[in-house]
């Protein structure tokens, strides 16, 4: 029993150690040459542009559902006109960043883990090293850069379409006057909220990509191993995003409010 726990603790510690080592190596790769510019541009395209549809759709429906649901609650207090405030505050501080991050974990995290994992089990990572390329610089750094810069951008887009989705519901379903909705949206926004809404996705993007790269590069055991890594990257990435959401929020509350 104890030995089972010991073994688990040992492997968990090893996993964390490897993760930290990978992120440190990636940081070195971000600030020192050589840089693989072509790969960086390519990853910005794949991670940023490629995720647009998913993010647009999930953002739109989240905002719409939020408006419909909070409209119902607000009716109990006769406060239907302030629905915009609720939508914008929830969207920007919480739902926009978290849902976008979860969508990206499914789309980007799994893709990265599967790609790096299959490169691992087919010796392509070893081939890179044998040909004089550091796989961290060539594969991990471009993905991290794209992840930390594109996740905030995608989150802002999700926020915007979410609030627009909320407007559609407010205007046509709840019969709230458009001007009232938008002024309420603006009133619900504080500068701190905007900061929260931008800092969170930055952290999430980093987490999603580094977890996926770590899991991918530790793949072993053939195609079955690739499958396991893909699943693990989504599960671990999602849990990490939600946990980080809590901790980042605590830190930001202490710092900003």
């Amino acid at each position: 029993m104890l030995s089972l726990f010991e073994r688990w603790a040992k492997s968990a510690a090893l996993e964390v150690q490897e993760y930290v080592r990978l992120t440190m190596a990636a940081f070195r790769g971000i600030v020192t040459p050589p840089f693989y510019r072509h790969d960086i541009v390519e990853q910005f395209d794949i991670i940023g542009v490629g995720s647009l549809t998913v993010v647009l759709l999930s953002g739109l429906f989240t905002g719409a559902a939020l408006a419909a649901q909070s409209g119902m609650t607000l009716d109990q207090f006769g406060a239907r006109p302030v629905v915009g405030r609720l939508v914008s505050a929830s969207m920007i501080k919480e739902l926009g960043p978290v849902l976008t991050a979860l969508m990206l974990t499914g789309r980007i995290g799994s893709g990265i883990a599967a790609e790096l994992g299959s490169m691992m089990v087919t010796d392509q990572i070893n081939a890179l090293r044998a040909l004089g390329t550091d796989p961290v610089r060539k594969l991990v750094v471009p993905r991290i850069l794209a992840g930390i810069f594109m996740t905030p951008v995608l989150t802002v887009i999700a926020d915007a379409v979410g609030i627009t989705g909320g407007w559609v519901v407010a205007r046509y379903q709840l019969q709230v006057n458009s001007g009232l909705y938008w002024s309420s949206v603006v009133k619900g926004l504080y500068l701190q909220d905007v900061w929260v809404g931008l800092i969170k996705p930055f952290v999430f993007g980093f987490i999603i990509v580094t977890v996926a790269c770590h899991v991918g590069l530790r793949t072993s055991g053939g195609t079955a191993g690739v499958g396991r890594s893909t699943t693990l990257s989504v599960v671990a990435g999602s849990v990490a995003v939600i946990a980080a959401d809590y901790f980042v929020m605590q830190i930001l509350i202490a710092l900003l409010y």
């Binding site: 087919t122 010796d123 392509q124 081939a127 044998a130």
Partner: peptide, 10 residues
């Protein structure tokens, strides 16, 4: 090095 399964970048 020529890897066992080729290890070409696919």
């Amino acid at each position: 090095m020529i890897f066992q399964e080729g290890a070409l970048f696919d």
